[in-house]
Design a protein around this nucleic acid. Sequence first.
RNA 1: CGGGGUGUGGCGAAGUUUGGUAUCGCGCUUGGUUCGGGACCAAGAGGCCUCGGGUUCGAAUCCCGACACUCCGACCA
Length: 479
Amino acid sequence: MAKDKKVTEITDMDVDFAQWYTDICRKAELVEYASVKGFTILRPYGYAIWENIQSIMDKEFKKTGHQNVAMPVLIPESLLKKEGELVNGFAPEVAWVTEGGSEKLEERLAFRPTSETMFCDHWHNVLQTYRQLPMLYNQWCSVIRWEKTTRPFLRSREFWWQEGHTIHETAEEAEAETQQQLNCYADFCKNALAMPVVKGRKTDKEKFAGAEATYTIEAMMKDHKALQSATSHYFGDKFSRAYDVTYTGRDNKLQYPFQTSWGSTTRLIGAVIMTHGDNNGLVLPPAIAPIQVVVLPIAQHKEGVLDKAAEVVARLEKSGIRVKGDFSEQSAGWKFAEWEMKGVPLRLELGPRDIEAGQCVVARRDNGEKVTVALDELENKIPELLSAVHDGLYEKALDNLNKHTYAAATVEEVKDVFETKGGGFVKTMWCGEEECEVRMKELAGVSSRCMPFKQEHLADTCPVCGKAAKTMVVWGIAY
RNA sequence: CGGGGUGUGGCGAAGUUUGGUAUCGCGCUUGGUUCGGGACCAAGAGGCCUCGGGUUCGAAUCCCGACACUCCGACCA
């Protein structure tokens, strides 16, 4: 294997990408399997990543006027069934409660797979006047969907997420909210996760059950597969009508509000693993890394080393950096490998020679580069280096996305990308017919990821049927 | 849900074909020597062999069943 392979606990990604992914999830101590199939335990290190994601995102939501609420976990069957499309979409994966204590329940209760119905029921009760609009709600919770095959973070029967639900006076306002939140996600991916995404609209076939329009951000993983990383839905007044959510409008007439919902999940952690990870393990963007800098004393038995290292930790902590000193008895080499596997962005080495020279060695996790930093300048240099790691990660991810995005004019060309070029995103024109979308899946094995907002005119005709093309679609193999 | 693979101390495996006292490496504990890329020596601890039935004097091993994990499809955040 390559010389830079230093962690042997992790299967190489080029040998077995799926195994590599699972190895990271387990060996970096992010998750552990629970005793029920498809349920996972988020361990302290994994949960800390999620907490960082939550705290950054939550602040963004609040900046635009959203408020957090908590809805019940159980939904009565009758309530869930009021909107036909949503029920049909989720029916195969709903888990039910049928007993309470020793009593059989009169009516089955669904574990929430998503909470549109609960929000609508609540709004039905509390909404009176246009003066209360818009209502901009969000909740952080877990939901249950009885998936058939499961993988940590990517697909599990319970997952943690945030679901935003809003109602508005006008369709335009609701549409704008949908776009605003999609952009919020895309910005988050870029600024916090160092992950570029393609923004676009889902085709009718791929959109959320019951939505009028679904918008998505799609990211490309290191194996060139697509990962839907967040979605934002516009519902029109469909749910309002189904759940009888009404208010008295400015015209003193009864009106139905226009609704949106938008969500992102712990899947984002899976996205980070597969966007930045390497053969030595996890690589975390600094913004969400539970530990941004690990301080490793070298020859720590020697006089003064541990004291100096503790001093460095305290100074960095004081300047607001998430820092940990590893003063355990393990050898230096072992610690290097361990913290590399856990994806810590910066490693700060401090040995007797450094102390004498008034400096330390800082190694970047993203590219392995080592630089010598004067101890006096730590408070300035460490944030600079963290920011450099972020940029380095983003550049690399963007390069991966660009290098594996193709344009195709025929079905054969689409197939060729997946058969000989190792896959990626393929842009083609499309007539807009679902029949052609299905046919593309049959012929080339790809599904439509989205119709990007950034449209290009690649050709005049649909590569499947040859009729006049309406829009450009991006195809890929999805997780 | 269809098709493969796997299940043995915390982790990774050998043993299963041909039934006969449960093995190895890592990790863990204690002591010592080490310490700038996964150190070494010594002594220890730890296992209803995934679970449930069956066959047998005797089952990790053979038979039946269940469950879990995993990979490839279909479905989905």
